[in-house]
Structure formats: structure tokens, C-alpha cells
Design a protein around this nucleic acid. Structure first.
Lengths: 296, 296
DNA sequence: TCAATAGTGTCTCTAAGACACTATGTA
DNA sequence: TACATAGTGTCTTAGAGACACTATTGA
């Protein structure tokens, strides 16, 4: 016997009679932070090209934030999950499919979209730089891959009554042929006896739409964290790559140089060596590796 | 001069004329996984009481999932963020304020709520067990603290064409005076050349409403991860505690025993020793510590 | 031949695992 | 006095940091 509620209805009866209330609902968008690593052109035949970490941005064609640059994204439709919406947007914007995709954070600051109540469920995507080159050209004219630079600007700690406040400001710079964007994002960690609260704020912002500077900063922080203790960076690599390639990808994500010997020991289990080598490099050839899919 | 859009409007003019479209929007709820650690009663005067990890659940009084147990939560209101909604719900349900609160994940599976389109932005909260005892009594009769057990049931790895599939099933058991709930949650990691996808599914479910078994499993995984490399566990401790207390909290969260000497070395920098000691313990007194708020 | 990169060896330092040992208040 | 817990010492193992060294190609 099915249980009945206060009105004597079964669950089926209840659902048949259920009326959606007319209280206000938010729009929910997905915004994608799509990372790829590309190589800069190098003139010296001997030197290796430098790696660059890039993200895809789209120039807005209408208000609000007209002409400013925004993360690719769109609204979640009925009968799809945020994950599916993210995969759909990614396919539409870049043509790629079946790549690394991870939910980042849901941003819901009031007034973050001046039009109406919009929450953003943000996603991180990693795609292989090789694929990107093809796409960048025939993409809509208002899309561009921006080189990412993200570094500590200043930092301080202060003792408050019964706790501490720790602030740090990070400078985010995004550059492409089309524009140079700059924003400063501040992280405030307030520690008291019983709680630890972290808040993020955009201190200054030149050319980035909405609160997207914050979302990008969030994505970079997540990527940096995961690079250190997962094999996530391998999703940015082509099928075959050298360990130096991989090290450069780690370095460009982390924004610092790594020691070769220690790096090779660290990633030894994440890759599988092949019998192939680089050729015509102007120096000693390098062994090519592929991703070890059996990690953990 | 302000930029004008295709219709020759400034941003102000655009926003004044903006009409909210009539496309369908989801409801957005926050669901709280509220953890606390309590002590079991111990009859032997010499033995220390055992610690138990508990979460707060509420028995549903109406359809759907009538009489089943659900996470406390509610809908996000206009003019509040999900974070504020979470803090509000927490205050309403437990009376506590200013505690550790962290966004977990946004769940949006279609059909997760049989009534209508509802996404759940889930939050993890940690409260001090001492505070809870007071509250548990005068709380609504339909709320209860459930002891949590979460352990690996089975695990396997399979080679697929061009990749691997790794599945693991975890058994979640929740017990209180009111009910014994049990669910099995399965994590599937599909690894291919270019991607790594993780999906979660509820394999079986006895007594838990909605997809809350998944949310709880997610919260436990997050808590376990953070216990290992942050000071998050200290948010579950009272002002003064012994290192043995703290070790037991780690053990009950991680579901395994730790070595005393190694544990004490590990947490040495997370705590500050005081000149107070336990008394009348039936054995050697133990030094009391407090949280070091200056950690990193 | 040599510039530039590929790749290895090894010393040090730190942290975790393992386990044995000493210390002490209260029934 | 002895039980149960408090707390320390130290050997081993694993991994990262640091740095020097050898190896190899192609213009």
C-alpha cells in the first residue's frame, strides 16, 4: 500500500495535480573556460618554440557589455543537464567533442547580469592545441584565443579581533591580436575561531564582460591545483609528445620553471614511452611518449 | 561617448527596454550536507568515548518521497546568492551561524525532482558537535542526526577499445534512532585517448529522497580529500581539544586508523598548545590544544 | 665543431610509515 | 599498583629539490 499524504493522495495523484508555483526563478547559464596550449613561432632553428596557455573568448555584439570579451556559453535548456549544455556549447564554439570537461563553480552574485537574474554554472574544458589551429580561422570573426598570464600582484595578512584576514590580489592579463584585457581579482580569506570564509572580488577590470574575470581566475586556480596532483595536463597534449613538451605545459600553467630531473621522475607513471623520436630538430632527438590511461 | 548597439541604443537605454523572455527557467535549490562529530556514550570509566560522524536529515512530510529522509535545504530567493541561501537555511535548521560553508557541486539531472525542473546547488557545512546536542532536542520532530558510514563495496577496472573504464561502488549507511538508511553509489570513470569522464549513479537506495545519496557521497569524498591536505577538520572541533580527539575525528572521517606519532607530526602546525589539561580521565591527563588560525 | 637540447646520477632534505619505548593520573 | 591513555624517539622509505654530469643530433 502506497503511503498517502495529508490530503490523502498517493505520490502519483500528487504529481498529476502538481502545479508549478509562480515564484520567480533564475535563468541558469553555463560559461566555459576552454584552455589550450599553443606554440609560439620561433625563428632560431635550434631553439624550441615557447608554449602559451590560451583561452577562448567571444566579443559581445550587443548590450550589455557591448564590444567587451566574454566566455563562450549559453543558457541551459529544459531536458538537458548543465553538463550536457556545456558539452553542446563546447561543440558549437570549437567543433571539438569528447574532451576533458569539469564543473567549476556556480556563480550567483546578485546583479552579475544587469538584465535579469542569471546564475552561471561554470565549466572547465581542456582541448588539444593542435586541433585549435584549424578551428581558429573559420570560427566566427568575433572569437579569439587569448594568451593567459596570471600572477600574484600583492598579498597581506592582518590580525583582526578573534581572527585573521588574508588578502591576495592576482593580476589577470589576456592578450590576442584583437585586444589586450586586464583585470585584478582579489581573494579574501577571513579566519575566525569557528569559520573560514573565502570571498572573491573583481578589483579592476578592463574589457572583460560580466564577472568573467572571476570565473577565469577560478579556473586557473583549479587547473593549477589539479596539474600538481592529477594527470589532468595530459588532456592538453597531442597523442605523441616529448617530456620536454609536457614539462613546458606544466610550466606555462603553473607560471614557474620546474627542475628537469624531478619533473621526469614525477610524471614517469603518467606516460608510456614509445619507440618514436622527434626528427630534424637541430639538436639531439627526443623520445616521444603517449598518455598512460591506466593511471590510478 | 558610449558605444551604441545595432539598434542605436546605449547600454542604459537597452536595459530600460529589456524584457525578460518567456523561455522556461529552472528552480534552483540549495541542499546542505551538514556534518558534525559527536561522542558515543562510554560505560567504561577508563576508556575514551568513540567519535561518530553525523549528518542532519529531515523526514519529508509530503509528496514526493513522502516519509523518506532528505537533506535540509530550500529554494534560492531573488536577491540572495546561493551562498546566502545556504547560510540562511543552515541558521534555520540548526540555529548555528558563522561556520565553515563551502559550495560542493550543482546537480541538474533531468527528472531528479519529479515535480518540476529543479537544480540543486549543494553546500557542505561543518559544525561543532558540542553545539549540536543542545539543538537536536528542540529541533522539529522530523529532523535527526544520522551516523554516517561510507565504505568501498567493490571496484573494478576494464580495458575498453581505446580506453579504460574504472568503476567503484561505495556503500552509504546512515543510522539514527528513527531510521536506518542505505544506498549504493557508483562512480564510473571512463578514460579515452583525449578525455576523462566521471559519472555518478545511485545503484540502490533505501529511504533517501531525491538524488541525495549522491550528494552525500559527493560531500564525503570532498571532506575526505580536504581533511588530508587542509585544516578543514578543525572546524569540527570545540575551542579546546586534545590531539587524540583530533586524531579520532580524522579517523572517523577517513574511515581508517592512523598512526599516532605520524599524525601528531602532521598536525603540529595546525594547532597551538595551551597550558590546560584534561582532568579526571581515569588515566594520564592530556594537553589541550586550540586551532592555529594562522595556517597558510 | 658546437649550440641547444636530451637524458641520467646522486646528494640532500623533508615527510610519512612503522613500531618501540617512556610517562602519568585515578580507581 | 595497574590500566588505559599520553607522549616521544628513531629507523626506514619515498619523493622532491638542487645541481652536475654525459649523450646526441644537424647546420
Amino acid at each position: 500500500m502506497e503511503p498517502l499524504d495529508r490530503d490523502g493522495l498517493t505520490e502519483r495523484e500528487f504529481l498529476e495535480r502538481y502545479q508549478v508555483g509562480d515564484y520567480e526563478r533564475p535563468s541558469v547559464a553555463v560559461d566555459m573556460v576552454i584552455f589550450a596550449v599553443t606554440e609560439s613561432d620561433e625563428n632560431n632553428y635550434r631553439k624550441l618554440p615557447e608554449k602559451e596557455l590560451r583561452i577562448l573568448l567571444i566579443q559581445r555584439g550587443g548590450h550589455p557589455f557591448l564590444d567587451q570579451w566574454a566566455l563562450p556559453g549559453g543558457f541551459v535548456r529544459p531536458n538537458e543537464t548543465t553538463e550536457q549544455a556545456a558539452a553542446r556549447e563546447l561543440k558549437e564554439e570549437t567543433g571539438v567533442d569528447n574532451v576533458y570537461l569539469e564543473q567549476l563553480y556556480t556563480f550567483s552574485d546578485i546583479g552579475r547580469d544587469p538584465r535579469t537574474w542569471v546564475m552561471s554554472c561554470s565549466y572547465l574544458a581542456l582541448i588539444i592545441g593542435d586541433l585549435l589551429q584549424v578551428q581558429a580561422g573559420d570560427d566566427a570573426a568575433n572569437a579569439a584565443w587569448f594568451k593567459v598570464s596570471y600572477r600574484l600582484l600583492k598579498e597581506y595578512k592582518e590580525r583582526m579581533d578573534g581572527g585573521y584576514v588574508h588578502k591576495s590580489q592576482q593580476e589577470l592579463r589576456l592578450s590576442s591580436d584583437h585586444a589586450e584585457l586586464k583585470a585584478i581579482v582579489e581573494w579574501t580569506v577571513t579566519v575566525t575561531e569557528t569559520s573560514t570564509k573565502t570571498t572573491y572580488a573583481i578589483v579592476s577590470n578592463e574589457g572583460l564582460a560580466f564577472d568573467h574575470a572571476k570565473i577565469i581566475a577560478f579556473a586557473i586556480e583549479r587547473l593549477r591545483g589539479k596539474v600538481n596532483d592529477t594527470d589532468i595536463a595530459l588532456h592538453l597534449m597531442p597523442k605523441l609528445f616529448t617530456l620536454t613538451d609536457l614539462q613546458q605545459v606544466y610550466e606555462v600553467i603553473l607560471g614557474k620553471e620546474l627542475l628537469k630531473a624531478a619533473f621526469r621522475r614525477k610524471v614517469a607513471n603518467l606516460v608510456i614511452e614509445t619507440d618514436h623520436y622527434t626528427e630534424n630538430a637541430g639538436h639531439r632527438p627526443s623520445r616521444l611518449y603517449r598518455r598512460n590511461m591506466e593511471v590510478l
